[in-house]
């Protein structure tokens, strides 16, 4: 076996979940290791917010995020673990204080709430924890 390219593309959790579910539904009975890993992965993914997504939502959300100065990987993390507080955006976006204004952070939270079905929590005292 030869590895042509170890990283052709990055998939978000939602894409993996839909692919695995489609496989589970169409293929005949899966056996062995494949059955184990698909079962465990689907179970993990169903515990994440991506269970409630639709592909339209994800596309619209990415379009809405385009206006901000954030990288592809940061967008991927926003889709996979949608932030609900300003603190979580700080974690996802490196040096967010310099790259995003408070207003931007507010807007990102609103976009996540709108497209990714999470409810933002309003805690302003970020440093307190």
């Amino acid at each position: 076996m030869e590895i042509v390219n170890a990283n052709v593309a990055t998939l978000c959790n939602y894409e993996v979940m839909t692919h695995l579910q489609k496989m589970k539904d169409t293929r005949k009975k899966q056996t062995g290791q494949l059955a184990t890993i698909t079962y465990e992965t689907i179970r993990y993914l169903e515990g994440t917010p991506c269970q409630t997504y639709t592909s339209n939502n994800v596309i619209e959300c990415l379009k809405a995020l385009e206006q901000f100065n954030i990288t592809k990987n940061e967008k991927l993390m926003i889709i996979n673990i949608p932030p609900t507080t300003a603190l979580e955006i700080q974690l996802i976006v490196e040096e967010s204080e310099e790259r995003l204004t408070e207003q931007h952070v507010e807007e990102i939270l609103k976009i996540c709430a709108k497209y990714l079905n999470v409810t933002p929590k309003n805690n302003d005292d970020v440093e307190e924890g």
Binding site: I3, V4, N5, N7, V8, T10, L11, N13
Partner: peptide, 10 residues
């Protein structure tokens, strides 16, 4: 956390 890897195999 998931990626696609391209591979060749006989």
């Amino acid at each position: 956390m998931f990626i696609l890897a391209e591979m060749k195999h006989v």
